[in-house]
Design a protein around this nucleic acid. Structure first.
Lengths: 359, 359
DNA sequence: AATGGGCATGTAATCGATTCCACATATACG
DNA sequence: CGTATATGTGGAATCGATTACATGCCCATT
C-alpha cells in the first residue's frame, strides 16, 4: 500500500494570493465566520472557483480535532438485518450532518479490533459496532475509546459504552410459545453458529418457551447451522432424520427458515399443514417466501436508529455521564407459515395481511 | 455537527519523553525503518504499550499525503448486486492493504457529488463509484480527481477515468432470444426506472432480441417499474391487463422477476407452463425462488474485482497513462422458470442444477 | 480634536506526525 | 594511528489548514 497524492488542487495559500488576502481571511470566508466584508467574500469565492480549490480535509481535521465521520461496523453487509441497521444509522447521520461509512468485518475479530484502532487513531470520530462474539480482547479495546463507541448487542453491565440490546430470549420464547399454542407437540430448533451471542440467547429462549408450556427439552430436536439460507436448507434434513415426528420448526433466523421452507417443499412436506415454521428477524423476504413466513421481529431498524442517536448525542457533547442501556422488545408477526394449522386451505393463495408494514 | 476529540491518547512527544528518545526515533521505530537499534526499539515499544499510544491518523496523513483508504459509493446497499460488488472490492482492498469504506448514495446525485468532493478534499485516496444516471455535473466533477476514481457503468468515451462496463444490451438480448427459442410469442418487458443507464440499455437489448428473431416491438408489452420485488409484483398486473395473451416475461432485474413469480402464483398462472419468466443479475435469491429463476448474470462480483484492481493499480502508481475500458460479457443461466416449457412436469420438484455455482 | 469601540484583516502559533539533514560515535581499512 | 565509511539519533522544517491575538481603520461620541 503505497500512494502519493497526485493532483494538486491548490492550497489555501494560493487562493489567498490570487484573491489578494491572507490565508486566514480565506479560511474565515470558507467557514462562514461572521466578520467578513461582502467585497472580500466575493473575491475569495471567485478565487476558490477559479482554482477549483477544495480544502484539504486532513489538515482541517488535524487542527480542529474532529473529522466529521462515524462508521458502522457489521459482520456481514450481505445480511438484510445489518442492511436495515445501516439504513437507519445512515438516516440519522445524514440528518445530523455526519458522514457515515460502513465497514464489513466478515465476522473476524481482527477486523473488529482494526475498526476500534481506527477510532483510537482518530481516523473516525465515532463507531457503532455489532459484534457476534464479545471477547475479552474486544472489551479491553473498548476501554481507550470510551464515549465514542456504541455497541449493538449485549455487553457486560460494567462495560463503559452506550449499548443497544434486544431481548432475543424473549423473542425466541414468543416464537416457541406461538408454535405450541397452534398445537405443535414436537418443535425442532435450528440454531446458528454455536458460541455466538445470538445463538446462545436463542437456544435459551427456546428452552424457556418449552418450559413455560410444560414441555420437555429434547436434544434430538436441536441442530446447529450457520444463519444462511443454504444452511437452513441442509439443516432441516438432519433435523428430520433425528426427529421424523417433528410438527414445528423454529429457526434462529429468517434466512435459515427460508431455506427450510424451500427444502420442505422439495420433500413434499406441507407448511403449515404438516410442519409449521417460524423464523426470526423479519427481513423483507418473509413476505415474499412461499408460504409467507411468520417471524419475530428484533426491530433492527429501530436499534440502528437508537444507536445512531446515542452515539451522536455523545460525541456532539449533548450527552454526558451514565452509560446508556437501551433495550427493545421483540414482537411476534404471524403469517402463512404458522396460520391455518391443520385446517385445509381453500381457494387461491391470498394476499399476505402484513404486506406494507414496516420491515 | 460539533464535536471535539475527547480522550487524549497521548502524542508521539510523550512516548519519546517516556522512552528517553526523540520523537523522530519513535516514528522510525513505529514505521519499521531499517536503522534502529534493538535496544532503542524495545524501549520505545515499551513506552508505546505503557501509554496505550495510537498514532494520530490525521497528522500522519497530512504529512505523508495519503490516508490508506478507498471508498465504494453505491446507490443502494440493500441491493444484492451492489453487495456482490462490495464484497469483491473489499476482498481486493484487504488483500492489498487498503481500508475500504462503503457509502450508500441512495441514488441521490448530491450524495454522489459529495463522495467526489470527499475525494477531492483528500478524505479518501480513491473512489469506485456506480452511478445510475451519468449527468453533466457528474462528469464535470470527475475532472479534478482524475486518476483516483473508477466508474462502474458506462461513461462517455472521452471521460478521463478508468471504467468497468457490462454489455447489458447483449444480456437483455440473450434473455429475450432465449424466451423466443423456447416458443414464446408474446414477450412482456418490465423495465426499471426510466432514464437510468441500466433501464435504457435493457430496453435497447429487448428490442434487439425481438429484431434478431424477426419479431415486432409492441408498446403494449412494456411497462415501467422500480427495480424492487414489490415493483415487479404490481407491474405484472398492469402488464397482463395490457396484454392478456402474454406467454413470456423478461424483467429488467431479478428482484422484479421474483415479484412477478410471486404474483403469478397468487393469480394461479403457472410458471413456466403458462408464462416463462427470466430476470437479470443472478442474485442469490434466484436459486431460492419458486420456481428457481432463470437469469442473465452481469458478473457483479467480477466487475467489483476488476474495478478494485484498476483503482489500486492507479493510485499505487503501478499503472499510468491510457484510461482503461474493461467490458465484461453477460451469460445466460437457465433454471426452472424457463425450463420444460409446455411440457407437463412429473414427480417432485428437483434440485436446481445450478446450486453451488458461483453467484 | 481626542478618545474609544467595533470591525475587518493580517501575523504567527498550532495541531501531531514524518523525514531531511547534520552530527556523534563505532568500525574498517591502509 | 589517522582517515574513511557505516550507523543510530536528534534537531528542525514541513504538511495545510484554523484561530488567538494584534493591528489599523473608520466613525461616533464628548
Amino acid at each position: 500500500m503505497v500512494a502519493r497524492r497526485s493532483s494538486k488542487r491548490g492550497t489555501i495559500q494560493e487562493v489567498a494570493r490570487l484573491a489578494g488576502v491572507s490565508p486566514a481571511t480565506v479560511s474565515r470566508v470558507l467557514n462562514n465566520h461572521p466578520r467578513t466584508s461582502p467585497e472580500t467574500r466575493r473575491r475569495v469565492l471567485d478565487a476558490v472557483a477559479q482554482l477549483g480549490y477544495v480544502p484539504d480535509h486532513t489538515a482541517r481535521s488535524l487542527k480542529t480535532g474532529n473529522v466529521g465521520e462515524i462508521a458502522l461496523a457489521v459482520p456481514d453487509i450481505g445480511n438484510p438485518v445489518y442492511v436495515a441497521i445501516a439504513k437507519a444509522v445512515h438516516e440519522v447521520a445524514a440528518r445530523r450532518g455526519w458522514w457515515l461509512s460502513l465497514i464489513s468485518t466478515e465476522g473476524s475479530q481482527t477486523e473488529e479490533l482494526r475498526a476500534l484502532r481506527a477510532l483510537a487513531g482518530n481516523r473516525i470520530d465515532g463507531l457503532i459496532i455489532t459484534s457476534l462474539t464479545v471477547s475479552q480482547a474486544f472489551l479491553r479495546a473498548l476501554e481507550p475509546v470510551q464515549g465514542r463507541v456504541v455497541v449493538i448487542g449485549r455487553v457486560p453491565d460494567e462495560t463503559p459504552v452506550d449499548n443497544v440490546r434486544v431481548e432475543s430470549e424473549v423473542g425466541a420464547k414468543l416464537a416457541v410459545e406461538h408454535l405450541i399454542d397452534l398445537g405443535c407437540q414436537r418443535i425442532g430448533f435450528i440454531n446458528g453458529v454455536q458460541g455466538t451471542v445470538p445463538s446462545t440467547s436463542r437456544i435459551e429462549g427456546y428452552r424457556l418457551g418449552l418450559a413455560s408450556r410444560g414441555m420437555e427439552y429434547d436434544p434430538k430436536l436441536v441442530v446447529e447451522s450457520d444463519f444462511t439460507i443454504m444452511g437452513g436448507y441442509e439443516a432441516i434434513d438432519r433435523l428430520l432424520e433425528q426427529a421424523p415426528d417433528l410438527d414445528g420448526v423454529f429457526a434462529a433466523n429468517d434466512a435459515m427458515a427460508i431455506g427450510v421452507l424451500r427444502r420442505l417443499r422439495e420433500r413434499g412436506i406441507r407448511v403449515p399443514h404438516d410442519v409449521a415454521v417460524i423464523g426470526m428477524d423479519d427481513i423483507d423476504l418473509c413476505r415474499i417466501a412461499t408460504p409467507t413466513l411468520s417471524t419475530v421481529t428484533l426491530l433492527a431498524a429501530e436499534r440502528g436508529r437508537i444507536a445512531g442517536e446515542l452515539l451522536l448525542d455523545r460525541i456532539e457533547g449533548r450527552a454526558q455521564g451514565e452509560w446508556q442501556r437501551v433495550t427493545v422488545l421483540p414482537r411476534l408477526i404471524v403469517r402463512e407459515s404458522t396460520s391455518l394449522l391443520r385446517v385445509e386451505r381453500v381457494g387461491p393463495p391470498h394476499q399476505d395481511p402484513n404486506v406494507g408494514r414496516q420491515g
